Amino acid sequence: MSEFDELQAVIRRHADARQAEQRACEAFLNALYHALRTASGPGLPLNNVTLEFRPDPDLRLRPAPTGSFHAAWLRLGLCEVLVRVRRSDGAFVGEYGSGGTFRLDSTTEDDLLALARTLLRHVTGVYGGATTTAPHLN
């Protein structure tokens, strides 16, 4: 078997795992989008939040290998925040904006709301000049 044939076989063999991981990461990003829409509290939806899935700008291979980041731009009114997420040891690990990071072992509604509120505070601080280091939500 040539190296090219071996590459094609490996890609085919791991297609299901890659697709399952992509679906899980996209579902997480969608859940974060919904959490951002309700981050102001019950009955106070943020109507100017949108989600746009994008290929990860740092990804250098397609299809994305297992363990790669999956990305989306979240529009928060007048600004946009790139959020990247991947699966690692059963948790969702990610990055957002200018240096924000997170790791969520659980994706309950409360966990996602906490992440959404942290993300909003961090972005507000960046634009307000009040923060130079990003928070880490664990």
Rank of each mutant, 00 (worst) to 15 (best):
R62A: 14
R12D: 15
P65F: 03
M1A: 14
D89K: 11
A130Q: 11
A20N: 14
Q19A: 13
T124L: 09
G43K: 07
P45W: 04
D110Q: 15
V10K: 12
E21L: 10
L29N: 00
S88H: 12
E52H: 14
T133L: 13
L7F: 09
A130D: 13
V85R: 01
Q22F: 06
R75F: 06
S88T: 06
L36F: 03
V49W: 03
F102E: 01
F102D: 01
L36D: 02
A31Q: 05
A134H: 02
L32D: 01
L74T: 02
Y127Q: 13
A134W: 01
R18D: 09
G41D: 09
F92T: 00
D56C: 13
F102Y: 11
L36T: 03
A31M: 03
V85Y: 01
Q8T: 09
T131Y: 06
R37P: 03
A72N: 10
V123D: 10
A64N: 05
L46N: 11
S40T: 08
R84V: 03
L59W: 04
F53H: 14
R60P: 07
F28D: 00
P65R: 04
E52D: 12
V49M: 09
L51V: 03
A35E: 00
A31G: 12
T101N: 12
D5G: 10
L7K: 10
T66E: 12
A9G: 10
T108G: 15
H122F: 12
L119Q: 02
A39V: 06
D58L: 09
D105C: 07
G128W: 08
V49Q: 04
T133K: 15
T131L: 14
A114T: 07
E6W: 07
L59P: 08
D110E: 15
L113Q: 15
T50D: 12
D16R: 11
R13W: 05
A134L: 05
L51C: 05
S98W: 07
V83L: 05
L32Y: 00
L82H: 08
F92I: 00
G94T: 01
G90I: 04
L59S: 14
Q19N: 13
R23P: 05
R86C: 03
G43H: 07
N48W: 06
A134N: 05
R121N: 13
G67Y: 02
D56P: 08
R86K: 15
R37C: 14
L51P: 05
R37Y: 02
G90K: 07
A35R: 00
D110A: 15
A134D: 05
L7I: 08
L61F: 06
A15N: 11
E80R: 14
V81C: 15
V85C: 01
Q19S: 10
M1Y: 05
Q8N: 08
E6D: 11
F28K: 00
T108R: 14
T66S: 09
E6C: 08
G97P: 10
A39H: 05
L137R: 00
Y96N: 08
V93Q: 00
T131V: 15
Y33A: 11
R60G: 12
R23K: 12
